[in-house]
Amino acid sequence: MDNIVSLLTTTEGRIGRQQWWIGIVVLIVISIVASIILGIISLGNATVMAWLAVLLNIALIWPSYCIGIKRRHDRDNDGTDLKILIAGSLILNLLQATGIGVTMTDMGGVMVPVPAIWLGVINFIFAVFAIYMLVQLGFLKGTTGSNSYGADPLDAAA
């Protein structure tokens, strides 16, 4: 349990792909459970749910940053691209919550947020960047041996 806590709360050192995926799975489970609870709390009100989603995003920023930055360090990278990913996620979340660039449309009796074209383009660009980051964080091997951020986590595991 201490390993999971330090994985999600510290930014020093490096982690390998396996530890990153473990951290991501933990965050996904937390996110799903919290989303279900928030969905119940919001009573189906899309505006309330959008603002609760912003709060959930804010709550998960630090643990997401911690596992991401250690993974970027494993690839001998300072993590600037990770900061862009996290900031972009929060900005897009805030745009949806405030209704900027979103029109509520009736789809068979259910009000659904439909993004404006400009917001759809931004979402598409962000999705491409997020896929790039997924490949960087979850699939590419880290630097073999020590780098400027510490010892190889695979050497320490052996």
Rank of each mutant, 00 (worst) to 15 (best):
N3F: 11
I4H: 13
V5N: 04
V5F: 14
T9M: 00
T10V: 04
T11G: 02
E12D: 14
R14T: 03
R14I: 04
I15W: 07
R17Q: 05
Q19C: 04
W20Q: 10
W20E: 01
W21G: 12
I24W: 06
I24F: 02
V26M: 05
S31L: 01
S31C: 02
S31V: 12
V33Q: 02
A34P: 10
S35E: 08
S35H: 09
I37Q: 09
G39V: 09
I40R: 06
I40V: 15
I41E: 01
L43A: 12
A46W: 03
V48I: 15
V48N: 11
M49I: 00
M49N: 14
A50V: 00
W51G: 03
W51T: 01
L52S: 02
A53C: 09
V54E: 06
L55W: 01
L55P: 02
L55V: 06
L56M: 13
L60M: 11
L60H: 05
I61F: 14
W62F: 13
S64V: 15
Y65P: 01
C66D: 10
I67E: 04
R71N: 13
R71A: 09
R72K: 15
R72M: 13
D76S: 12
D76I: 07
T80Q: 11
T80N: 07
T80D: 12
D81E: 10
I84F: 15
L85R: 10
A87N: 11
G88W: 03
I91H: 08
L92A: 08
L94A: 13
L94R: 00
L94W: 00
T103F: 06
T103Q: 15
D106L: 11
M107W: 07
M107V: 08
G109H: 13
M111A: 13
P113K: 09
V114H: 00
P115H: 11
I117H: 10
I117R: 13
W118R: 00
W118E: 13
L119R: 09
G120A: 07
I122A: 15
N123K: 13
N123L: 14
V128F: 03
A130R: 01
M133L: 09
Q136A: 05
Q136D: 06
Q136S: 04
K141C: 02
G142W: 02
G142A: 02
T143M: 14
S146T: 01
N147K: 13
N147G: 12
N147S: 12
N147R: 12
S148L: 08
Y149S: 02
G150W: 08
A151M: 12
A151V: 03
A156L: 07
A156W: 00
A158E: 07
